[in-house]
């Protein structure tokens, strides 16, 4: 039997967005009704990530190349020890080899309700040889042993850029969720007056409304494999309005991550926005005389 989370509502922040426990606490205090919180990925060594600019938003698509700024596991534990968060935390972890993931999960396991395994960050630091390039070959070796490391639900966060069908098939017996997906690309934005790339990291993962059709297809492709194995889907990618959640549910997702859509919103604006989003989904379910469970994966065609 696979282990699944009960999130109320099934909406989370995308990893790397809002990032820190004090930000989540502030949102909880203001009444923002997220179902769980996903802090920034915890990794095997400290790094600053790229210098600025780390994001670029041209109004159609956003690019980011933070390249996993990471602080120490101990300082994460200090934050977890002191948090007053009420909603569950989904830990995110990155590494470069299977042992990295196992070590971090062992140390932090008691503070989280599930683990999102980040094997799909498309960015790297300037001068860094590689971070998560050519992960396709390694993903199975990273994911498979984790059942012996943690009893918590395991979420594999995959990239829309790789052969995700083959990857999914290779790990499907060892996970509870597949998260679809990390940012697309990476893509390149150029400044015409300096003739330089805008992002300090040269290229950056793409997110926002424009990538939604790509991740919608990814969700549906993976749902066809996952649903036979009691594996659920988390959708990330261009969710900005309640209809996007309904679409992703129809395609097969049961949890929904919001990221780029929170851009330019202060704490109160995020609160109003996120609370309205789930209420609107519930209104839709009522109007359509259906339930959320019936909606998931009901795509007719």
């Amino acid at each position: 039997m696979n282990k699944h989370l009960t999130l109320n509502p099934p909406i989370v922040n995308a990893c790397g967005i809002l990032s820190y426990l004090d930000v989540f606490e502030r949102l909880e205090k203001t009444g923002a009704n997220f179902g769980a919180w996903v802090p920034k990925s915890i990794g095997p060594f400290e790094k600053q990530g790229n210098p600025n600019p780390t994001i670029y938003n041209d109004g159609n698509v956003m690019l980011n190349a933070f390249a996993l700024p990471t602080h120490s596991i101990q300082s994460w534990i200090n934050e977890f020890e002191n948090t007053k968060l009420k909603k569950p935390i989904i830990g995110s972890v990155w590494g470069t080899k299977p042992e990295d993931y196992q070590n971090i999960i062992k140390k932090v396991d008691k503070y989280v309700e599930a683990w999102e395994i980040n094997v799909s960050c498309p960015n790297k630091e300037v001068g860094e040889k590689s971070l998560m390039e050519s992960m396709t070959e390694k993903i199975k070796d990273i994911i498979t042993p984790l059942r012996n490391t943690t009893q918590k639900p395991i979420i594999a966060k995959l990239s829309p850029n790789e052969d995700y069908i083959t990857i999914t098939k290779s790990i499907i017996d060892h996970v509870d969720y597949v998260a679809c997906g990390n940012t697309l690309g990476p893509g390149l934005a150029i400044d015409i007056y300096s003739k330089k790339p805008i992002l300090a990291g040269f290229a950056g993962g793409m997110s926002g409304d424009a990538i939604k059709p790509k991740t919608m297809k990814m969700v549906n492709d993976i749902y066809k494999i996952a649903s036979k194995k009691d594996v659920k889907i988390i959708a990330y990618g261009g969710i900005s309005k309640w209809q996007d959640i309904v679409e992703y549910a129809i395609a097969g997702a049961s949890i929904f991550g919001v990221g780029t859509a929170l851009m330019h919103k202060d704490t109160e604006q995020i609160t109003e926005y996120i609370n309205k989003m789930w209420t609107s989904v519930e209104n839709y379910l009522k109007e359509e005389n259906t339930s959320f469970d019936k909606l998931v994966g009901c795509l007719d065609g």
Binding site: Y20, K40, N52, T54, I55, N64, M263, K265, D266, T267
Partner: peptide, 22 residues
Amino acid sequence: YMKCAVGLCGECSFSGYRVCVD
């Protein structure tokens, strides 16, 4: 210290208030 300046990354958190947008 600020990175995105548009409220996304959380880097400029000041006891949970994002200085760039709050």
